[in-house]
Design a protein around this nucleic acid. Structure first.
Lengths: 220, 220
DNA sequence: CAAATCCTCCAAAGATCGTTGGAATATCCG
DNA sequence: CGGATATTCCAACGATCTTTGGAGGATTTG
């Protein structure tokens, strides 16, 4: 009784840990932080086969990190709770803080250094003042599922054409899913290349939401 | 460029995730939340072979979750930072909240239901009032590495003999490492069986420390 | 330098995980 | 009911992870 027979507890806990131990599953979780998704949508957005996607989702479901909702023939997956999103964000934070490789990989794909970041408090002030254009570059469905109040939805693909209609003087702030999302940085580069003043929000909607800041949902 | 080439980032992140994906490694992390330990000590306390222990520690080291310090012929391992301990605690929290199996496994080994828990604020009040005996049932070295101010160190093994010297009226509150630690609950049962009034602290020292409450270190 | 101690590295066997295509299942629609 | 669509289940192969004993390194002590 003294040599702790609680290996079962650690076994159960390891099930949850394992769920976070695959790049593919992390990619799925990353997408799911933005709102629920069908298997098909996840499969297309990540580029993995449907069988593979389903298998990974089963593992996430078995570890109770996601839940499902059936709608006709398709099944929508969503994170089991905001605490799961928070855990994912915390893991990214720890990885970023402690392992230089993660930082390097991020910098390489995000082009850090070239792109300036705006802090949460500063964005709040600027929105209050109303002298800034806040652009949500994620796909339209993700914008609908939840966005920063005051942001306009311009998916990355249609950014260039939308550019024409704006007054050239106004500063632009972009954001996307989270700290690992490239689109916001790419957008800033595209905009500054065309002579605009643009920066990106620090992190993305996930961290904004977890920080307790307001999020707006477009009613269906 | 559009189909997100950031798989490398997820690969790096998965390295951290994998580290949490093994019951053995979680057991090591659990011990390390209480302070640094040598390979040998970890091997003995967990019951795994030294080679196995070392292998797991290498994986933790590679994922930058632990750091090492050499002292003569032995090497001390410690968590890379308090954020790692926080991540571990957060994972336990999510597992407990979302998966019934974890809750069941915990209840089975902890004897939940029979043992009453004391909240952090209540303990603080009672310590202030001074009408309670706070007992740290962990091994003496863990007590030395950090304990709640006002607690006395009585390792679980020597609890029974220590019992004699106390006034029978005073209420006793026990604690050990964390939410998964059985010793505090076992101690409460041992004490109540002998007619004492005893409860355990909710969770353990890890959660107490993460909550920002004071921790005292016995000077060497 | 030699012996002792503690730890890491190595190689091999066994276990587990990941991916794949195709079959099976569930639901909706006509 | 039959066809269409979306998803899960299955089997199997290759890849990766875990464990183990023993060899190899580093450090201290005599």
């Amino acid at each position: 009784m003294d040599p702790t027979p609680l290996s079962e507890v650690f076994d159960e806990l390891a099930v949850v840990g394992k769920a976070f131990g695959s790049a593919r599953r992390l990619e799925l979780i990353d997408l799911l932080t933005q709102g629920e998704r069908t298997v098909d949508a996840l499969s297309r957005q990540t580029g993995m086969g449907v069988s593979t996607t389903s298998a990974h989702l089963q593992i996430l479901k078995l570890s109770n990190l996601v839940r499902t909702r059936r709608e006709g023939t398709r099944i929508h997956y969503r994170l089991a709770g905001e605490d799961v999103a928070a855990l994912y964000a915390a893991m990214r934070q720890v990885a970023l803080a402690n392992s230089p490789d993660v930082e390097k990989a991020l910098a390489a794909h995000l082009g850090m250094g070239e792109v300036e970041e705006v802090s949460h408090p500063e964005l709040l002030r600027r929105l209050q003042a109303g002298d800034v254009l806040l652009v949500d570059v994620r796909p339209a469905e993700e914008y609908a599922a939840g966005h920063i109040p005051g942001a306009v939805s311009i998916p990355f693909g249609s950014l260039q054409e939308a550019l024409g209609g704006w007054p050239p003087g106004e500063e632009i702030i972009t954001y996307c899913r989270g700290a690992y999302c490239v689109m916001a940085s790419d957008a800033v580069r595209l905009l500054t290349d065309r002579g605009r003043t643009a920066r990106r929000l620090k992190d993305g909607l996930l961290e904004w939401r977890l920080a307790g800041h307001p999020v707006e949902r477009t009613p269906v």
